[in-house]
């Protein structure tokens, strides 16, 4: 019995999704899942593999550093996962875009029905996952011999990135499928923390009225070391790019503090943030549904309240 965790990484470091996925793996191991191995696939990712060796309770790190894994194309990574899966009972990945893209592809090749986005481990074959954008929780039992699972990062605390001393095994590449090629990436440049892992998130909705007005949220974000988010309404209105979107169709976040500004609180938005520890809502409509989930609600004009908040944080 053994578990393979597919690492999320940025070549020189592990992504935070790996640390929460490892937590889920440890829970499965504790229920009889066996040893944990970590796969680091990519091109020029030796540093990330080195980092993975120090993860607690990891026995072995598999490094597949090869040209065809550059940009982690699903068509090239899935065959590697399929080949390795032979030796494992569980294959886990974070449910970030990489895991969502690759894991089902590998699963289909193994004739396995994967379990997406788990939020709890009940036993070796039973897991809890949100459905209907988190409006219901489904407890499912897998009848497949192998289990391919993606793990919702916000539901499992990140394990410390130290304490382990795993051995390293280097793998050969499985070749280029020739099916797809990477043309370019356009990554949002930001000094701020990443939305899904930030300790504090401040989000704006349709009430912001324009993309330019997000600058007042940015000022508060800078004071709090917060990430900037937005509701789908704000993204649809073109105020901010889609990768800001918090909600059912965007990112799911669970920071210690979530500040919703000018967001009414549609079901679809609540689905992405209601597991935050403390929720603050600032909205001029006192009937807004966001107040029903907010720990602290302030009925106010955001264009007065937000600059005031920025000033108050200086004191």
């Amino acid at each position: 019995m053994s578990i393979l965790v597919i690492a999320d990484h940025e070549n020189d470091a592990l992504g935070s999704a790996t640390l929460s996925t490892l937590n889920a793996a440890q829970q499965i191991a504790a229920k009889g899942g066996g040893d944990i191995h970590v796969l680091v696939a990519g091109k020029g990712c030796a540093e990330a593999a080195k980092a993975a060796q120090t993860l607690p309770e990891v026995k072995k790190v598999l490094l597949a550093d090869s040209e065809e894994y550059d940009h982690l194309l699903a068509e090239n990574v899935a065959p590697l996962v399929v080949k390795l899966a032979e030796g494992y009972d569980y294959v886990l990945a974070g449910s970030a875009t990489f895991g969502k893209n690759v894991l089902p592809r590998a699963a289909a090749l193994l004739d396995v029905q994967p379990i997406s986005d788990i939020v709890a481990v009940e036993s070796g074959d039973t897991f809890v996952r949100p459905i209907y954008a988190g409006n219901a929780l489904s407890k499912v039992q897998s009848g497949d011999a192998k289990k391919l699972i993606s793990v919702r990062g916000t539901a499992f605390d990140a394990v410390p990135a130290e304490g382990g001393s795993a051995e390293l095994e280097t793998l050969e590449g499985t070749g280029d499928s020739g099916l797809s090629s990477h043309v370019g990436s356009e990554l949002t440049q930001s000094e701020r923390p990443e939305l899904t892992t930030a300790r504090v998130v401040i989000s704006g909705g349709r009430g912001m009225q324009s993309g330019d007005n997000f600058v007042i949220l940015e000022r508060v974000a800078d004071k709090l070391g917060a990430a900037l988010g937005a509701s789908r309404a704000a993204v649809d209105a073109g105020f901010v790019p889609n990768d800001y979107q918090v909600g059912q169709t965007g990112k799911v976040v669970a920071p210690e503090l979530y500040i919703a500004v000018g967001i009414s609180g549609a079901i679809q938005h609540l689905a992405g943030m209601k597991d935050s520890k403390v929720i603050v809502a600032i909205n001029k409509d006192e009937e807004a549904p966001i107040f029903q989930v907010a720990d602290y609600g302030l009925v106010a004009d955001l264009f007065e309240a937000v600059p005031e908040l920025e000033k108050a944080l200086d004191q």
Binding site: A136, L137, S138, K274, F291, Q292, Y296, L298
Partner: peptide, 28 residues
């Protein structure tokens, strides 16, 4: 044939509405 058996579907824990604050000073 389905490979996943749904054992149970439940409501997520409800979140209680908190308090209204009167001002930014109060909030901070």
């Amino acid at each position: 044939a389905p490979r996943l058996k749904v054992l149970n579907v439940s409501e997520p824990p409800a979140r209680q509405a908190g308090v209204r604050v009167e001002s930014i000073a109060d909030l901070v």
